[in-house]
């Protein structure tokens, strides 16, 4: 009994400690992002990695998400005889929910896991210690370009996702199922207001921050992992955990932001 309590207490303490560390890490990184030096080259190469190389996946998932929305929306709306609302239904669900969430999840899978693994390996092989000993701040040198790149590219990727998705819905709804072309876009123009776009934007910005933060912090604190972040297995285990943690956090925050902004 005593033992079990001790273990629980231990675990709670560990979690609190980790949460505190990650919180401080976030603050330090945000400070680095705001303060000089502002170097373009590393940021560009990270935008290339996090943003540009994700475009294909985003186009693909965006198109299919829009298409399935068109399909499902059509059969649901037809029951009420209001197929004309398809355009607004597709656009609203994409802009407010699916665009930001699915983009974030795709980026977590593509770039987030890579960030955790990269930083984790650098931690494991003392490369981060080496940076510190050279008086090069790892937050400025390693994290800053990733943070800036994520904050810039994830909202853009989300926008691409939304647009492609709307055209995917159009393809299925209008071209395949015969919804009126004018009604599709007219309904969309009429029902999407600035507030919806704002919500999508806020979400994608918050998700961008959550994704880089969790991915890089888990890598950065690899050596403090409970079950040991040692070697190849430690890196792979931590990467998996970071992906799960980032995905869950994104979904939780999705609900919170919706609840606050609606």
């Amino acid at each position: 009994m005593r033992n079990a309590l001790e273990k629980i207490g231990d675990q709670v303490l560990y979690l609190l400690e980790m949460a505190g560390r990650m919180g401080l890490f976030l603050l330090t990184c945000l400070k680095c992002v705001l303060l000089p030096p502002y170097k373009m080259r590393p940021v560009l190469s990270q935008i290339q990695f996090i943003g540009a190389r994700s475009i294909f996946v985003i186009l693909f998932t965006g198109a299919f998400t829009g298409m399935v929305l068109g399909l499902q929306g059509y059969y649901t709306l037809r029951k009420f005889g209001s197929e004309g609302l398809l355009g607004s239904a597709v656009a609203l669900s994409l802009i407010r929910e699916l665009g930001p969430v699915l983009t974030a999840l795709m980026v977590i899978g593509r770039a987030g896991s890579a960030i955790t693994a990269e930083i984790g390996i650098m931690r494991n092989s003392e490369q981060i210690d080496a940076l510190e000993c050279m008086a090069i701040d790892p937050c400025t040198y390693l994290m800053k370009p990733k943070f800036v790149a994520a904050i810039l590219s994830i909202p853009l990727l989300t926008a691409i996702f939304d647009v492609v998705g709307i055209w995917g819905g159009w393809l299925v709804g209008v071209q395949l199922l015969g919804v009126n072309d004018g009604a599709y876009f007219q309904g969309m123009y009429a029902s999407v207001i600035w507030k919806d776009i704002e919500m999508g934007l806020v979400k994608s910005l918050v998700f961008a921050l959550l994704v880089v933060w969790i991915a890089s912090a888990r890598g950065y604190f690899l050596h403090l992992e409970r079950e040991g972040g040692f070697g190849a297995e430690g890196v792979s285990r931590t990467t998996t955990r970071a992906v799960v943690m980032a995905s869950v956090t994104v979904l939780v925050w999705d609900y919170l932001i919706s609840a606050i902004m609606l």
């Binding site: 990269e118 390996i121 650098m122 092989s125 003392e126 490369q127 210690d129 080496a130 510190e132 000993c133 050279m134 008086a135 701040d137």
Partner: peptide, 20 residues
């Protein structure tokens, strides 16, 4: 601490080179 480290040159036992 960083100001002190500005004066340092360090060789780690495993060299700790940036492998990429």
């Amino acid at each position: 601490l960083n100001e002190i480290r500005m004066n340092f040159g360090v060789l780690f036992q495993n060299a700790a080179l940036f492998d990429s």
